[in-house]
Design a protein around this nucleic acid. Structure first.
Lengths: 336, 336
DNA sequence: ATAACATACGAAACCGATTTCGTGTTAACA
DNA sequence: TGTTAACACGAAATCGGTTTCGTATGTTAT
């Protein structure tokens, strides 16, 4: 990198002190008009730009927000990032993104680096491994150090900070209710293993809807999908239970379910309706297009970052942590 | 944020100088074993972590790489990011991600902020608007300042820096050749407007394949899709030209094409084969699943960042700029 | 003529680290 | 006993800015 021009360079060249240069560039009244002119002209000509690091160190703020995500190649999370970036840039902040890749150690490492002055605050969605480990010391430390922190999507009850979550229960309820209103009686659910929180919550909504319509006895066909064995085989078994609808905990399960149903010689939605969770490109462009619960990732990201910036800029107020719930909506398409 | 513990705090508390503390923590031989012990114990106990900003300012390097992308909610780009992050973290770097949202002004603004010392180098994929404007001053400035820069995917010939691109011509060629080998004779292509480079290049590959098999007269059915009017209508017109295959410039066009073909009462792949470009979730999970050119975004991101870090760490060598071409492969599925 | 004050600028501290260089103490050696 | 070297540590410069405070000069009021 070419040697950058600094205030010191300018001050030497023009025979003034660094304080004068600094003040002149910031248009201080302490400096005479002609001196200002001279300095500004010189700075302009040589394309002087103040060094960010120096400013950040001096001001004790970076205007950078750290974001730690479990993964990126995922429609929901990339939507969340977009929301975060939008909200951040609107308030003059930049974002520094790291990925835990669902790994506990990665999460800890990233946290350590980011929390050392590089950022003014952190946005975190916890890795799966961390959820399983149940070791949250790194996050508790953050809270203890009073570093502004907002958790989103995958949050921990035991950590005392602002949170933004999707209304998973409500989503599960809406999806199931929709199927019931379409006249479906035997509604299966493809859920996740119990340690993944979202599956549990969405299932809760599913059960609530069934209960409300007195279908708990006849329906209640939830299975926990095992990611380690073949997905389609597991779905085949569900189909064999003489069902007329499937509520899938995510888009991919829904897409694979449709394929499985067809392979069994049945039609969607005539024989079996399918509703997914997460409204991404698959739901939109597959044929038939898939009815799905929209998670509003963009809104979630934007709200999370706004909450965080609010914390950062109004530290003194010391308000108690808040939890925002982003409600989900149903996008009805061809599969139901 | 709670007042952070600094070297100065430690030095005051233990009655030694800051130099001693710094040296002790870095395990310098200049410091006696017992003093080291005392200082380390204290630092450990109060969870001392050196301030990143101070280090970065001192060392004149940040170990951060700036990334500017046109968009994020896009399978290809999120894959690229993943590759970038992987390559970066392997070498101890972090990434700072910004989005231009395809806007020229956004790109310029982001560039300005990042290039002021916050990062050691930059990775850029140019915004559409910038490509149209043909105003590349901001990028030329970067090169003039000798800030390490690697452009990827959407690159500019006129800027003298390292580049990583997808082999779009080869991809178009492979896709078309595959269709020809399946016995297709009248192959349509859904391309982009001429100012979008990728469409032009992929079309070049398409034409080359047709020429090679002497189908240029009979086939050569490329249309430029107009994003402002209805996509499906445009595809209907193409189908009416009595074609037996479609090569779509991206996944979405391919998915919509399949839907249009079905609505016309024809079958995929029996009546019309479809091949897409960009192998994302849509191609994988739609039914029929879509044969597609895999772009290897991950590889592209990883190679780009490795090229960049090489530049950063071996500045002195001053090698001439290189351009890497990531070759694409065909992933054959049900649609062809 | 002198006190009072505004003007225009510089010196120095500060943000939080690292590192070079200098120095006082002690031990070893001639 | 005097010289030298090793040891252990501190002072100060540095990275690139900002800001407080002090001060020389000129202007105005008394």
């Amino acid at each position: 990198m070419k040697q950058k021009i600094t205030i010191k360079t300018i001050s030497k060249e023009l025979g003034v002190s660094t304080s004068t240069v600094s003040k002149a560039l910031r248009d201080s009244h302490e400096i005479s008009a002609e001196t200002k002119e001279r300095i500004k002209a010189y700075a302009d000509f040589f394309n002087y730009k103040p060094n960010n690091l120096a400013l950040q160190l001096r001001n004790q703020k970076t205007k950078v927000i750290g974001v730690i995500l479990p993964k990126i190649v995922h429609h929901f999370f990339s939507t969340v990032i977009k929301g975060i970036e939008k909200g951040a840039s609107e308030k003059g902040y930049h974002i520094m993104v790291c990925f835990s890749n669902e790994s506990y150690q990665s999460e800890v490492d990233n946290l350590k680096v980011l929390s050392n002055g590089s950022v003014d605050g952190l946005l975190i969605s916890v890795a799966k491994e961390t959820l399983q480990n149940e070791d949250f010391k790194h996050l508790q430390d953050l809270v203890n150090e009073e570093i502004p922190l907002v958790m989103f999507d995958r949050v921990l009850d035991s950590i005392d900070c602002d949170k933004v979550i999707v209304d998973d229960i409500g989503g599960g309820y809406k999806a199931t209710k929709h199927l019931i209103e379409q006249g479906r009686k035997r509604i299966a659910m493809l859920s996740t293993p119990a340690h993944v929180n979202i599956g549990v919550l969405r299932e809760k909504g599913y059960t609530r809807a069934l209960k409300e319509f007195n279908l708990l006895e006849s329906s209640n066909l939830a299975i926990e999908v095992d990611d380690n064995s073949d997905l389609k085989e597991q779905i085949f078994k569900v189909i064999d239970k003489d069902i007329d609808a499937i509520f899938a905990v995510n888009e991919i399960y829904a897409a694979v379910a449709i394929r499985a149903i067809r392979e069994k010689g049945m039609k969607v939605p005539e024989d079996i309706s399918v509703v997914g969770f997460t409204d991404g490109l698959i739901s939109e462009y597959s044929s038939p297009s898939i009815t799905a619960i929209v998670q509003h990732g963009f809104t979630m990201g934007k709200q999370a970052v706004e909450l965080l910036i609010d914390r950062i800029e109004n530290e003194s107020e010391n308000l108690p942590p808040a939890t925002k719930v982003i409600s989900s909506t149903l996008n009805i398409r061809e599969s139901s």
